[in-house]
Amino acid sequence: MNWIAVTSIYKFEMARFFRTMTQSFVSPVLSTSLYFVVFGAAIGSRIQEVEGISYGAFIVPGLIMLSVITQSISNASFGIYFPKFIGTVFELLSAPISFIEIVLGYVGAAATKALFIGVIILITAFFFVDITIVHPFWMVLFLVLTCVSFALFGFILGIWAGNFEQLQLVPLLIITPLVFLGGSFYSISMLPPVWQVISHFNPVVYLISGFRWSFFGAADVPIVTSLFAIAGFTALCLAVIWWIFRTGWRIRQ
Protein backbone atom coordinates (compact mmCIF):
# COMPACT_ATOMS: atom_id res chain seq x y z
CA MET A 1 0.00 0.00 0.00
CA ASN A 2 1.24 3.44 -0.94
CA TRP A 3 -0.12 5.26 2.12
CA ILE A 4 1.74 8.46 1.29
CA ALA A 5 -0.20 8.65 -1.96
CA VAL A 6 -3.51 7.92 -0.23
CA THR A 7 -2.95 10.66 2.33
CA SER A 8 -1.75 13.04 -0.39
CA ILE A 9 -5.01 12.62 -2.31
CA TYR A 10 -6.99 12.85 0.93
CA LYS A 11 -5.26 16.03 2.10
CA PHE A 12 -5.46 17.63 -1.33
CA GLU A 13 -9.21 17.02 -1.49
CA MET A 14 -9.76 18.18 2.09
CA ALA A 15 -7.77 21.34 1.37
CA ARG A 16 -10.22 22.15 -1.41
CA PHE A 17 -13.07 21.71 1.08
CA PHE A 18 -11.58 24.00 3.68
CA ARG A 19 -10.61 26.59 1.06
CA THR A 20 -14.28 26.97 0.22
CA MET A 21 -15.27 27.11 3.87
CA THR A 22 -18.22 29.44 3.34
CA GLN A 23 -19.76 27.12 0.82
CA SER A 24 -18.86 24.01 2.79
CA PHE A 25 -19.88 25.22 6.21
CA VAL A 26 -22.35 28.09 5.98
CA SER A 27 -24.65 26.63 3.36
CA PRO A 28 -25.59 23.43 5.24
CA VAL A 29 -26.13 25.41 8.43
CA LEU A 30 -28.29 27.92 6.63
CA SER A 31 -30.37 25.39 4.73
CA THR A 32 -30.90 23.29 7.85
CA SER A 33 -32.02 26.35 9.78
CA LEU A 34 -34.48 27.12 6.98
CA TYR A 35 -35.88 23.60 7.14
CA PHE A 36 -36.38 23.96 10.87
CA VAL A 37 -38.10 27.29 10.46
CA VAL A 38 -40.39 26.07 7.67
CA PHE A 39 -41.06 22.47 8.65
CA GLY A 40 -40.38 22.60 12.32
CA ALA A 41 -41.89 25.91 13.39
CA ALA A 42 -44.42 26.89 10.70
CA ILE A 43 -45.80 23.53 9.58
CA GLY A 44 -44.66 21.42 12.50
CA SER A 45 -46.71 23.41 15.00
CA ARG A 46 -49.85 22.20 13.22
CA ILE A 47 -48.77 18.56 13.10
CA GLN A 48 -49.31 16.39 16.10
CA GLU A 49 -46.51 14.33 17.46
CA VAL A 50 -45.24 11.61 15.14
CA GLU A 51 -44.74 8.31 16.93
CA GLY A 52 -44.61 10.18 20.20
CA ILE A 53 -41.90 12.59 19.06
CA SER A 54 -42.38 16.29 18.32
CA TYR A 55 -42.37 16.91 14.57
CA GLY A 56 -39.35 19.26 14.79
CA ALA A 57 -37.25 16.55 16.41
CA PHE A 58 -38.70 13.84 14.17
CA ILE A 59 -37.31 15.39 10.99
CA VAL A 60 -33.74 15.78 12.32
CA PRO A 61 -32.46 12.31 11.29
CA GLY A 62 -34.09 12.69 7.87
CA LEU A 63 -32.57 16.13 7.38
CA ILE A 64 -29.12 14.85 8.27
CA MET A 65 -29.52 11.90 5.89
CA LEU A 66 -30.76 14.19 3.13
CA SER A 67 -27.65 16.37 3.35
CA VAL A 68 -25.19 13.58 4.00
CA ILE A 69 -26.38 11.51 1.03
CA THR A 70 -26.39 14.49 -1.33
CA GLN A 71 -23.01 15.72 -0.12
CA SER A 72 -21.32 12.31 -0.27
CA ILE A 73 -22.42 11.83 -3.83
CA SER A 74 -21.59 15.31 -5.05
CA ASN A 75 -18.19 15.46 -3.30
CA ALA A 76 -17.02 12.09 -4.52
CA SER A 77 -18.38 12.41 -8.04
CA PHE A 78 -16.94 15.89 -8.47
CA GLY A 79 -13.65 14.86 -6.85
CA ILE A 80 -12.91 12.23 -9.49
CA TYR A 81 -14.75 13.85 -12.39
CA PHE A 82 -12.88 17.16 -12.12
CA PRO A 83 -9.41 15.65 -12.82
CA LYS A 84 -10.96 13.79 -15.75
CA PHE A 85 -12.50 17.01 -17.01
CA ILE A 86 -9.40 19.20 -16.78
CA GLY A 87 -7.03 16.42 -17.74
CA THR A 88 -5.01 16.10 -14.53
CA VAL A 89 -6.17 12.48 -14.30
CA PHE A 90 -3.05 11.53 -16.29
CA GLU A 91 -1.10 12.04 -13.10
CA LEU A 92 -3.23 9.56 -11.16
CA LEU A 93 -2.86 7.01 -13.93
CA SER A 94 0.90 7.39 -14.26
CA ALA A 95 1.60 7.37 -10.52
CA PRO A 96 2.81 4.20 -8.78
CA ILE A 97 -0.54 3.69 -7.09
CA SER A 98 -3.30 1.16 -7.48
CA PHE A 99 -6.96 1.90 -8.13
CA ILE A 100 -7.71 0.90 -4.53
CA GLU A 101 -5.51 3.72 -3.28
CA ILE A 102 -7.18 6.21 -5.59
CA VAL A 103 -10.59 5.11 -4.28
CA LEU A 104 -9.43 5.28 -0.66
CA GLY A 105 -8.15 8.82 -1.11
CA TYR A 106 -11.13 10.26 -2.96
CA VAL A 107 -13.90 8.33 -1.24
CA GLY A 108 -12.27 8.83 2.16
CA ALA A 109 -12.14 12.59 1.64
CA ALA A 110 -15.69 12.78 0.26
CA ALA A 111 -17.06 10.71 3.14
CA THR A 112 -15.19 12.84 5.68
CA LYS A 113 -16.63 16.04 4.23
CA ALA A 114 -20.15 14.60 4.30
CA LEU A 115 -19.67 13.38 7.87
CA PHE A 116 -18.44 16.82 8.84
CA ILE A 117 -21.55 18.42 7.38
CA GLY A 118 -23.78 15.81 9.05
CA VAL A 119 -22.28 16.66 12.41
CA ILE A 120 -22.71 20.40 11.79
CA ILE A 121 -26.39 19.85 11.00
CA LEU A 122 -26.82 17.78 14.13
CA ILE A 123 -25.23 20.52 16.20
CA THR A 124 -27.42 23.13 14.50
CA ALA A 125 -30.48 21.00 15.27
CA PHE A 126 -29.70 21.12 18.98
CA PHE A 127 -30.32 24.87 18.85
CA PHE A 128 -33.84 24.40 17.50
CA VAL A 129 -35.24 21.27 19.10
CA ASP A 130 -34.73 18.96 22.06
CA ILE A 131 -33.20 15.70 20.94
CA THR A 132 -31.80 12.80 22.87
CA ILE A 133 -29.93 10.10 21.02
CA VAL A 134 -31.02 6.72 22.36
CA HIS A 135 -28.39 4.61 20.60
CA PRO A 136 -25.36 6.84 19.99
CA PHE A 137 -23.12 3.98 18.83
CA TRP A 138 -25.61 2.89 16.17
CA MET A 139 -26.22 6.52 15.21
CA VAL A 140 -22.51 7.01 14.44
CA LEU A 141 -22.31 3.67 12.65
CA PHE A 142 -25.30 4.47 10.41
CA LEU A 143 -23.96 7.92 9.70
CA VAL A 144 -20.47 6.72 8.78
CA LEU A 145 -21.75 3.82 6.68
CA THR A 146 -24.08 6.14 4.80
CA CYS A 147 -21.26 8.61 4.12
CA VAL A 148 -18.96 5.85 2.86
CA SER A 149 -21.49 3.97 0.77
CA PHE A 150 -22.85 7.06 -0.99
CA ALA A 151 -19.34 8.40 -1.51
CA LEU A 152 -18.56 5.09 -3.23
CA PHE A 153 -21.68 5.55 -5.32
CA GLY A 154 -20.64 9.13 -6.14
CA PHE A 155 -17.20 7.93 -7.17
CA ILE A 156 -18.77 5.49 -9.64
CA LEU A 157 -20.97 8.29 -10.92
CA GLY A 158 -17.93 10.54 -11.41
CA ILE A 159 -16.11 7.83 -13.34
CA TRP A 160 -19.17 7.19 -15.48
CA ALA A 161 -20.09 10.81 -16.22
CA GLY A 162 -19.00 12.10 -19.58
CA ASN A 163 -20.04 15.69 -18.93
CA PHE A 164 -21.28 17.99 -16.18
CA GLU A 165 -24.90 17.43 -17.12
CA GLN A 166 -24.67 13.71 -16.50
CA LEU A 167 -22.90 14.45 -13.25
CA GLN A 168 -25.90 16.47 -12.04
CA LEU A 169 -28.58 14.32 -13.62
CA VAL A 170 -28.37 11.21 -11.47
CA PRO A 171 -28.52 13.05 -8.12
CA LEU A 172 -31.28 15.28 -9.44
CA LEU A 173 -33.50 12.67 -11.06
CA ILE A 174 -32.87 9.63 -8.91
CA ILE A 175 -31.30 10.41 -5.57
CA THR A 176 -33.24 13.53 -4.54
CA PRO A 177 -36.69 11.93 -5.20
CA LEU A 178 -35.64 8.73 -3.42
CA VAL A 179 -34.46 10.68 -0.40
CA PHE A 180 -37.52 12.94 -0.27
CA LEU A 181 -39.84 9.96 -0.68
CA GLY A 182 -37.75 7.95 1.76
CA GLY A 183 -39.44 9.37 4.80
CA SER A 184 -37.15 12.30 5.56
CA PHE A 185 -40.06 14.44 6.65
CA TYR A 186 -42.68 11.85 7.51
CA SER A 187 -43.18 8.35 8.81
CA ILE A 188 -44.00 5.69 6.24
CA SER A 189 -46.94 4.66 8.44
CA MET A 190 -48.56 8.03 7.68
CA LEU A 191 -48.93 7.06 4.00
CA PRO A 192 -51.91 5.27 2.41
CA PRO A 193 -51.36 1.47 2.34
CA VAL A 194 -50.50 1.36 -1.38
CA TRP A 195 -47.74 3.91 -0.96
CA GLN A 196 -46.45 2.11 2.08
CA VAL A 197 -45.91 -0.98 -0.07
CA ILE A 198 -44.27 1.03 -2.85
CA SER A 199 -42.02 2.77 -0.31
CA HIS A 200 -40.55 -0.56 0.67
CA PHE A 201 -38.85 -0.68 -2.72
CA ASN A 202 -37.05 2.56 -1.94
CA PRO A 203 -33.68 1.69 -0.39
CA VAL A 204 -33.40 5.09 1.27
CA VAL A 205 -36.43 4.25 3.45
CA TYR A 206 -34.33 1.63 5.24
CA LEU A 207 -31.49 4.04 5.82
CA ILE A 208 -33.59 6.83 7.23
CA SER A 209 -35.65 4.44 9.29
CA GLY A 210 -32.56 2.86 10.80
CA PHE A 211 -30.97 6.20 11.46
CA ARG A 212 -34.16 7.49 13.10
CA TRP A 213 -34.29 4.37 15.24
CA SER A 214 -30.83 5.18 16.58
CA PHE A 215 -32.21 8.56 17.69
CA PHE A 216 -35.61 7.66 19.06
CA GLY A 217 -35.73 3.88 19.33
CA ALA A 218 -38.69 3.70 16.93
CA ALA A 219 -38.52 2.64 13.30
CA ASP A 220 -40.69 2.05 10.22
CA VAL A 221 -38.85 -1.15 9.36
CA PRO A 222 -36.91 -3.60 11.56
CA ILE A 223 -33.44 -2.35 12.39
CA VAL A 224 -31.82 -5.55 11.09
CA THR A 225 -33.40 -4.94 7.70
CA SER A 226 -31.95 -1.44 7.71
CA LEU A 227 -28.49 -2.76 8.48
CA PHE A 228 -28.73 -5.34 5.72
CA ALA A 229 -29.91 -2.68 3.29
CA ILE A 230 -26.97 -0.35 3.92
CA ALA A 231 -24.46 -3.23 4.00
CA GLY A 232 -25.91 -4.56 0.74
CA PHE A 233 -25.68 -1.16 -0.95
CA THR A 234 -22.08 -0.75 0.18
CA ALA A 235 -21.22 -4.22 -1.10
CA LEU A 236 -22.86 -3.46 -4.45
CA CYS A 237 -20.87 -0.24 -4.85
CA LEU A 238 -17.66 -2.03 -3.92
CA ALA A 239 -18.41 -4.72 -6.49
CA VAL A 240 -18.94 -2.14 -9.22
CA ILE A 241 -15.71 -0.37 -8.24
CA TRP A 242 -13.87 -3.67 -8.33
CA TRP A 243 -15.21 -4.27 -11.82
CA ILE A 244 -14.10 -0.77 -12.92
CA PHE A 245 -10.69 -1.51 -11.49
CA ARG A 246 -10.44 -4.80 -13.42
CA THR A 247 -11.55 -3.36 -16.73
CA GLY A 248 -10.26 0.21 -16.57
CA TRP A 249 -13.74 1.28 -17.69
CA ARG A 250 -13.90 4.97 -18.66
CA ILE A 251 -10.47 5.64 -17.20
CA ARG A 252 -7.75 3.79 -19.08
CA GLN A 253 -7.94 3.33 -22.79
Partner: peptide, 14 residues
Amino acid sequence: ISTVRFSRGLFGKP
Protein backbone atom coordinates in the same frame (compact mmCIF):
# COMPACT_ATOMS: atom_id res chain seq x y z
CA ILE B 1 3.63 24.70 -4.28
CA SER B 2 0.59 22.66 -3.27
CA THR B 3 0.18 21.05 -6.68
CA VAL B 4 3.89 20.18 -6.79
CA ARG B 5 3.73 18.81 -3.25
CA PHE B 6 0.69 16.73 -4.26
CA SER B 7 2.60 15.24 -7.19
CA ARG B 8 5.47 14.22 -4.94
CA GLY B 9 3.11 12.55 -2.47
CA LEU B 10 1.20 10.80 -5.22
CA PHE B 11 4.41 9.10 -6.24
CA GLY B 12 4.90 7.92 -2.68
CA LYS B 13 7.83 10.16 -1.80
CA PRO B 14 7.83 11.59 1.73
